[in-house]
Design a protein around this nucleic acid. Structure first.
Lengths: 130, 130
DNA sequence: GCTTGCCTTGACGCCGGTGACAAGGTCTAG
DNA sequence: CTAGACCTTGTCACCGGCGTCAAGGCAAGC
């Protein structure tokens, strides 16, 4: 399987595949003419990568999952390193949610304040605008 | 007030202030030698900018708030354009929270699945690891 | 042999808000 | 006169996951 076919089957671009390779996530043999030749299993690897990227993982986070797949597991999630990353990401997501809630509160307060004081303050603005 | 003093009083860097100026947020007169000379009011502008950046706004989002301040309002939040941005940002934050919740659910499920299948699948990994 | 379509590496662009550095002008105190 | 503490513009670097173009090699059908 050449890079174009893999890209199409995985629903991504050749550029992305080469990028994953330079970052140690994908493996390819080389044919006599220098073309990358992929094993069938790499398709699963690429799909794992894409799925995790879509969830918001970085390439570094994904590395353990790929290693887990290569170790012969049906899922990349079952190895200790993967689980550790999953836990860490879960904590990060929780932190992100908290932060967004704080921002949301502040935005709502500012919005409420803005609407309350709209009459008095914007009368001045309306006068200057005309 | 020169740029160094404004930077220190606002708790930021001269680099940032020049950046804000190139993006149309800050205004400065020039003295005979070419130095930027800031009016006292620019301090409030810079503080508004920093506060909004800290909440997660981009410079483009901040522009209406600065305009609102310059129009003579005590707060940059009270003008229609600012309120529109606040509403939009609030919606964005809500969307972000929803997305993170979805991610969180998925992570939790994958984590649960990984732990459930740890025994059967990782026995193979442990054997290869040794 | 020519075209077409695949493949290769290399390198720049993006987005946003700076940090950091270069090479110079200016002002003030000693 | 000089040191040093300001100021100026301009440029590169960063982060991440690619898109995109450049310039070229290789395979296959006509």
């Amino acid at each position: 399987m050449l890079i174009g076919e893999l890209a199409e089957r995985a629903g991504t671009s050749t550029r992305a595949l080469r990028y994953y390779e330079t970052h140690g996530l994908l493996r390819a043999a080389r044919s006599a003419n220098g073309y990358r030749v992929y094993a069938e299993t790499e398709l699963h690897v690429v799909r794992e990568i894409r799925a995790l990227l879509a969830v918001g993982f970085g390439l570094d986070d994904i590395r353990p999952f790929v290693a887990c797949l290569r170790a012969g597991n049906a899922s990349g999630h079952v190895c200790p390193d993967s689980v550790a990353v999953l836990r860490r990401k879960l904590a990060e997501v929780d932190a992100g949610i908290d932060r967004l809630h704080a921002v949301r509160r502040e935005l709502r307060d500012q919005l409420a304040h803005a609407i309350t004081h709209r009459e008095e303050t914007c009368s001045k603005l309306r006068r200057t605008a005309r």
